[in-house]
Design a protein around this nucleic acid. Structure first.
Lengths: 346, 346
DNA sequence: TTGTACGCGTTATCAC
DNA sequence: GTGATAACGCGTACAA
């Protein structure tokens, strides 16, 4: 009673007068036993209170059913919701997730990956953007990245370009005199760069007056607010009296911009239309609900895990066919029209 | 080259003419080898490109260094940030985390726990509130819960009572004529019930006019907004002209309330003071920064993991001393004074 | 300081 | 249908 060692197949075998092999088959191929014997074993399991040991199973058959995840800080809602949706796929695919929070230091993330490999994970999902896709590709393990540089690895991303096109088209359709896009200077090999391309392409094609305002990426609220105030000041003077359609790089920034305006005017002035990106909770929780380009996080997460599962399955075959080219899946965004792009003149 | 089976201690042993034991000791007790031999083995590891296999290690010594986590949806910032901070403790304690998102169905969560047990986790952190602490306590594995019913298990919680005391004291100090607390009817065995007790105790002690307004807990934004509008309507008529200090049950609700007021008046009227709970991002991102009782999520997460590590270590001893009583740790909150409790008359 | 032999709890490969 | 027996890769008495 005191030394309660775990009940093993051996114990069950002795108890039932079967062999370990038969017990194993009871779990992995029950049909190969007579119903009668199944019942006997089933009863023994109850009697002995058997608990399975997957660690031993792994060692024997090599299948951990582990997927490793490296994700940047969950402070950002986009990442936490993505992780949420990824974890929920356990119900569909049965894979378990070992999660590390990347801290933007290369050496640290390499350590995380080593640790994951030591636990014999079958695949990885990378949202962290610290390590190059080239380095990741060298890891010799199925990998899918989400919304980051992905030249040498498989990935699932939002169709950022399409999102920008939808946003700008909405603003243009509302009769804006000038279209503004605010963003940080980002590398053209990032999926999010599509937002800039989409903005420019539509403006040029439709021959719309437009301007992109770049500010450095700020990691904290106060600095971001300062940058956006600067942008606002510029707009107020430069485009005075004109109807301004502003496509902000994300909902957090759109919310700050909206707040600056509401604090100044007590409402959103008629000559300002705002649209953000992400459909994060701030966009609905804002003082006036913010129009936004919604990322379908649930679908992205599902597609990412599904793609990874496919890759992992291929690898288990007797003659795996390696991918010639990385697969890049794209999930369409959803335009959400809310108060900040409706006519708000009373 | 094609059949790249993993390099094992055996391979290294043959390569170096040592025994497996010596290789094992190289990793676990290097000082027991001569520096010379350490160098030889070290070199062989490079040469053969050895990768450690923790699964085999686990089977041999029983230590998985796994902690299981069951957490409700990460949509709520409080939970995602808590998970974030828990995951970050890997750097301190070295434990890896297997994470499941609870979906509020008892049977499902029991399955999750079974799965975790099968992987021989050494302990669990439970944020999900689906299963009773009584049931959890029966699991015979170290468990720490966070901010949920915890009668029979160890836990770490915010000092909700103290938080409420601070909030109410702030409002009272600002000369409010009446103090309001909005909340959902919650069970008195939840840590969050301390907010209600704290509110009442201070009001009664200081002999302040006060009222608690209960509304059912709504899972979506729109319904919550409707409830808060009802509350607002009641306040507007009942306490017309009086200075109202409102202690809202959380920041999300405080933000909605603030938005309702700002949409109506273009600003926060002078006779309304608002304070929320949690210090979640909405409180700083609101149109007017919302005063709040901040939970020290980083400290709670750290204390929870630390407590769990202590429990797990005790269990590894030759003669573990079982806890007579569950340990309940409490982390003090931090009052954050922001715009919604400052004088905002101009 | 180093080596031998066995155990950890399963699965896989043969036999019967 | 069922059973021996050998992996899987590492840790750990116990010896030497």
């Amino acid at each position: 009673m005191s030394k309660k060692k775990n009940v093993t197949f051996d114990d069950i075998a002795k108890f039932t007068n079967f062999s370990k092999t038969t017990i194993s088959r009871y779990f992995n191929d029950p049909d190969s036993l007579t119903l009668e014997n199944q019942a006997i074993i089933s009863h023994a399991l109850e009697e002995l209170n058997y608990k399975e040991n997957k660690v031993a199973k792994i060692l024997a058959n090599g299948k951990t059913e582990f997927i490793g995840i490296i994700i940047p800080s969950l402070f950002n809602h986009y990442y936490s919701e993505m992780l949420n949706q990824i974890l929920l796929t356990y119900e569909t695919f049965g894979y378990k997730f070992l999660v590390f929070v990347g801290n933007e230091r290369e050496e640290t993330e390499r350590r995380y990956i080593e640790e994951l490999m030591a636990y014999k994970i079958e695949g990885m999902i990378i949202l962290s953007y610290t390590l190059s896709s080239r380095e990741l590709a060298g890891l010799q393990i199925p990998i899918v990245t989400i919304e980051r540089e992905d030249e040498y690895v498989c990935s699932v991303n939002t169709d950022n370009y399409m999102g920008a096109v939808q946003a700008v088209s909405l603003l243009a359709g509302k009769g804006c005199d000038v279209l503004i896009h605010t963003n940080s200077p980002i590398s053209s090999n990032l999926p999010a760069y599509g937002r800039i391309r989409g903005f420019l392409d539509v403006c040029l094609e439709k021959n719309l007056r437009h301007q992109i305002l770049y500010k450095p990426f700020a990691h904290n609220y106060d600095l971001t607010q300062i940058y956006l105030q600067e942008i606002l000041d510029e707009l107020e003077t430069k485009y005075k009296g004109m109807k301004k359609g502003i496509f902000v790089s994300n909902d957090d920034h759109a919310n700050i911009l909206l707040n600056l305006l509401v604090r100044k005017y007590g409402r959103l002035p008629d000559d300002y239309l705002i649209i953000g990106f992400d459909n994060s909770p701030v966009s609905t929780g804002a003082v006036f609900p913010i129009s936004t380009v919604g990322q379908q996080i649930d679908r992205i997460a599902y597609e990412a895990v599904k793609l990874l599962v496919d890759l992992m399955n291929e690898r288990k075959k007797r003659r795996p066919v390696p991918l010639r080219e990385p697969i890049h899946k794209v999930v369409p965004p959803v335009l959400l029209r809310r108060a900040t792009t409706e006519d708000h003149s009373e």
